[in-house]
């Protein structure tokens, strides 16, 4: 009865680093096969997208005042730090960035084995009155963002919350949209989108691969 959730939850353990690195290399190798994984964003594309989003955040909020970037573990966190660096360079002031673990707020805890918790690190004086920009790698069902909003509510009362994602692959299950998107990727539900980052997986890339045998 929970088969659909199995497929659509995207922070699942099968997206472990090793597997994703393997997907990248297999994508590079298999030029001939049409069903193979393909790289949709490489390291330069990712850097460009993050730089543009950083500028958009500054533009939308008329500067970096009160802005806090909170990445959702695991791959949202390095993205948040990178964007904060770009913003600091542009504006000449430090932009705080941290991480927000949403594991304990997920709606699928009863459906899968216990997950390991990731650190929550709120920079500065907390989120009260701040303009929080949530950062994640892939926006899919929207359930992770829902959990993040709940987690944020328990930490304080931000002045506003915005959402920045590197990739929006569609198939939303909740009324949630991103304010800043690196790239819109039309995908089928069967496909798998994996993001690898230098900080966590040694390589910067976004890869689309066809469903593996088990998922259907």
């Amino acid at each position: 009865m929970y088969g659909i959730r199995e497929k659509t939850s995207f922070n699942d353990p099968s997206r472990e680093a090793e597997k994703e690195v393997r997907l990248v290399s297999s994508a590079e190798r298999s030029v001939k096969t049409t069903t193979a994984s393909r790289v949709v964003l490489d390291a330069t594309d990712i850097t460009r997208a993050l730089t543009r989003i950083a500028h958009e955040i500054l533009e939308r909020n008329k500067g970096p005042d009160d802005v806090i970037l909170l990445g959702i573990p695991r791959r949202g966190v390095p993205l948040a730090h990178r964007m904060a660096k770009v913003m600091a360079k542009v504006e000449g002031t430090e932009v705080p960035s941290g991480s927000l673990d949403v594991t304990m707020y997920r709606d699928d805890l009863r459906l899968r084995p216990a997950r390991t918790l990731e650190p929550t690190d709120i920079p500065g004086h907390g989120v009260d009155g701040a303009l929080v920009v949530l950062v994640d790698d892939v926006l899919f069902s929207g359930r992770t963002v829902r959990a993040a909003l709940d987690a944020l509510g328990d930490l304080g009362r931000p002045r506003g919350v915005q959402l920045a994602v590197l990739v929006d692959r569609g198939h939303r299950e909740l009324p949630i949209r991103a304010d800043f998107v690196g790239k819109n990727l039309p995908t089928s539900l069967a496909e798998r989108v994996t993001v690898t980052l230098a900080e966590t997986d040694a390589v910067d890339a976004v890869v689309i691969s066809p469903a593996e045998g088990g998922i259907s």
């Binding site: 805890l109 009863r110 459906l111 899968r112 216990a114």
Partner: peptide
């Protein structure tokens, strides 16, 4: 948390 989260089906 570790004992109670996760269903019987999901538990190895």
């Amino acid at each position: 948390y570790l004992l109670l989260s996760g269903s019987d089906a999901a538990r190895p």
